[in-house]
Amino acid sequence: MDRSSGTAPEVSPAGDAASGRRLALDVHERLRAMILNGELAPGSVVPQAEMARRLGVSRTPMREAFRLLQEEGLISSRPDQRARVRTVDAEDVDELFGARIMLETLAVKVTTSTLTTEDLDRMEAALQRMRALSGGEDVDAWHAAHKEFHRIPTQAVGEHLERMLASLAEQSERYVRLGQLGLPGSCSRSDEGHEALLAALRAKDPALAARVLAGHFARGALGLLADIAPEYEPRATRTGLATVVGGLGV
């Protein structure tokens, strides 16, 4: 996705000099953008052959793109069924953010003491971009800045945990977007959490940074769940929060 313009990239046509892998990634980014912006609605069928024709590519890169989307939790597909855009599932939201609370707070604790002034200034710059873009039309640029903000305070972890965190962040983006649509003022409340996290990191306080981050994720998850499934009991999110903050509320 072209993060600077907020638009999805054009897919290279079949037969272009780009490698098959690059073409598959282009297709993946285009389909991912269509799902995140609602062009492909939750529950809708996504036929591989039709999408390949629509994007002007062969079935091979399309299959790889579908595999990546399935790994990200954006589509569901079985050998005997057509692929569908996954619906918004309360249990999925709960478990995803419960896992993110546990793993990302671990990563922040590992990273806090290693952060330099330059790292913290980059976080501040990302936060300023988020503020400038908040409420505007360039939603993709906001999410690019948001991703950068959250990546820096976890950057000291090893490759295995880094991959897990990246996967959770990718899967979370869809729900962050839904939360922004359904909860007016969520960006402002999110800014407060980001500011508190940055302050804790500047103070070199890993325990405080972890508590702030856990509360930040929990507020987002619980707000979305209250909106889409008020009867659902978010055990994973609440358990993750209690584990990190010692039973304190949000």
Rank of each mutant, 00 (worst) to 15 (best):
V110L: 15
R22N: 11
S76V: 11
V212R: 05
R174E: 11
H150L: 14
R131S: 07
R67W: 08
F97N: 06
D121Q: 15
R82Y: 08
V93K: 07
L168F: 10
V45L: 07
Q128C: 03
A203M: 09
R235Y: 08
R86L: 15
G158K: 02
L224P: 06
Q155M: 14
V57A: 02
C187K: 14
T7C: 12
G73Y: 01
T116S: 15
L197W: 07
V27R: 01
L120A: 07
P42C: 04
E170L: 12
A229C: 06
E104Q: 15
R211T: 08
A203I: 04
V108I: 15
T243Y: 15
M123I: 13
A132S: 15
P153C: 08
L241S: 10
L127D: 06
A132Y: 03
R211N: 11
R86M: 15
R163H: 13
L241F: 09
A41V: 12
D119E: 06
E233P: 00
R131H: 12
Q48N: 05
G193M: 03
A126K: 01
G43K: 08
V27K: 04
A214M: 09
R211D: 14
L103W: 10
D16P: 00
A169E: 08
G240H: 07
G182H: 05
G220P: 05
A41G: 08
R189C: 03
M34D: 15
S113C: 01
G73D: 00
L31S: 03
L127S: 14
V45Y: 00
G15M: 09
A144N: 03
A14R: 13
T60N: 10
A229D: 14
A214C: 09
R219Y: 12
R122C: 06
Q81V: 11
D227Q: 13
R84M: 03
G179E: 02
G185A: 10
R174W: 04
E95L: 12
L208F: 04
T154E: 14
D191Y: 12
E72Q: 14
T7V: 14
L225K: 02
R211H: 13
D138T: 12
A126G: 01
Q70T: 13
G43V: 03
R84Y: 05
D191R: 15
F149W: 06
R63Q: 13
Q48Y: 03
G73T: 07
A169Y: 02
R82M: 10
T105L: 06
G223C: 07
R54W: 08
S58F: 04
S172Q: 11
V11M: 05
S44R: 11
D205F: 05
A125R: 13
S5C: 02
M62L: 15
A218G: 08
G182K: 06
D94M: 03
G158Q: 11
D191N: 13
R30E: 05
